[in-house]
């Protein structure tokens, strides 16, 4: 019950924060100097054409009125009409968000799938070769400029010189996207039983997902390593050893379980940052997701699109943080609220 109360309180706190977020989002996007109507009216537009466009998108209204419209729209789940794409921003999000989600989820899978084993190996073989290797690997990870890594290693090495993996985009040119169910090609293609599409999509996502995940992969490795080291030194592990329980069982069952909490925390936090990092990764790999969408929107000063994107990211970020805290409360009953 206490937990339920806690969740309610946290949700309540989110209201003023989200309100602040809408103000910040609105102010920032409208502070960008320029006029979207002058962008989409075309290179040689007449005054009249520019004026008509301003009118049809409500850009001729004073800013406070535009803000009120924006917020009232939000309440109804309406993010406005994209000035550049001439259709509701929500439709755009439906087309572009799944690609980013898929990339982010794939990155999380890599983070955990590679980070946790590496961390465990590192902790078990503390101060020996595998540990040294892992630590160097993770120092490089947290220090790596993502965009540079993407360009260098992956494009140059895999795509250009070795040709192991396919190029940009989510699918090869002659593949049609699978029927839209979730928008995640890896899942939709399986649902539809198109295995060649699945493998194609998997090969396409591998490089960008790895590139995006590297930083957080390194962080997860570090966290798992340090908490495992802490746990492995505790009394109950020593007792377990004395009782003759196999070492693998000790490591996986007892020690690892206890390092779950920090791992969950860091995964949650990473998810939001991964969404942000996706902007750079998507630009480099031509991944048709939100990152590219928002960069193009900024280029056209498409206010509704920019605001829609930042809001969604903020919403996801805040919700995930909440989720992490709640999970944390479940996993760690010692904490009082």
């Amino acid at each position: 019950m206490r937990i339920l109360q806690y969740i309610l309180r946290r949700l309540f706190y989110m209201i003023p924060v989200l309100f602040g977020v809408t103000i910040l989002v609105f102010v920032i996007s409208h502070a960008i100097p320029g006029d979207p109507a002058k962008m989409i009216a075309g290179p040689k537009a007449s005054r009249q054409a520019i004026e008509n466009i301003r009118k049809s998108h409500g850009l001729d209204q004073p800013l406070p009125i535009q803000y009120i419209r924006f917020v009232t729209g939000l309440v109804k789940g309406d993010l406005g009409v994209s000035i550049r794409n001439h259709r509701p921003v929500t439709h755009d999000l439906k087309d572009f968000l799944p690609a980013t989600l898929e990339l982010t989820l794939a990155s999380i899978v890599i983070c955990l799938g590679v980070g946790i084993p590496l961390g465990i190996i590192s902790a078990v073989h503390r101060n020996r070769l595998p540990d040294h290797f892992t630590r160097v690997f993770s120092v490089f990870g947290v220090s790596m400029p993502v965009f540079w890594l993407g360009l260098m290693l992956l494009l140059l090495l895999f795509y250009r010189n070795l040709g192991w993996l396919p190029g940009s985009g989510r699918l090869d040119i002659d593949f049609s996207p699978p029927v839209h169910v979730t928008g995640l090609y890896l899942i939709d293609s399986l649902l539809d039983g198109q295995f060649d599409t699945f493998f194609n999509a998997a090969a396409h996502i591998l490089l960008p997902a790895f590139c995006l995940s590297y930083v957080y992969l390194a962080i997860v490795t570090r966290i798992v390593r340090s908490s495992m080291i802490e746990v492995l030194g505790q009394d109950f592990i020593i007792t377990a050893r004395a009782n003759g329980i196999a070492e693998t069982a000790i490591v996986l069952k007892h020690a690892f379980k206890n390092s779950l909490i920090p791992t969950v925390t860091i995964t949650g936090l990473s998810f939001g940052e991964l969404l942000g990092g996706a902007i750079l990764t998507e630009t480099i790999f031509g991944w048709p997701g939100m990152g590219k969408y928002v960069v193009d929107s900024v280029n056209y000063l498409d206010f509704p699109a920019i605001m829609g994107f930042t809001l969604i990211v903020a919403l996801v970020y805040v919700s995930i943080n909440l989720l992490v805290d709640v999970l944390y409360a479940f996993l760690n009953p010692r904490i009082q609220y």
């Binding site: 602040g20 977020v21 910040l24 939001g272 969404l275 942000g276 990092g277």
Partner: peptide, 9 residues
């Protein structure tokens, strides 16, 4: 509010 956004964004 500031922390509601990924820092890069």
């Amino acid at each position: 509010v500031i922390l509601s956004f990924p820092s890069l964004v």
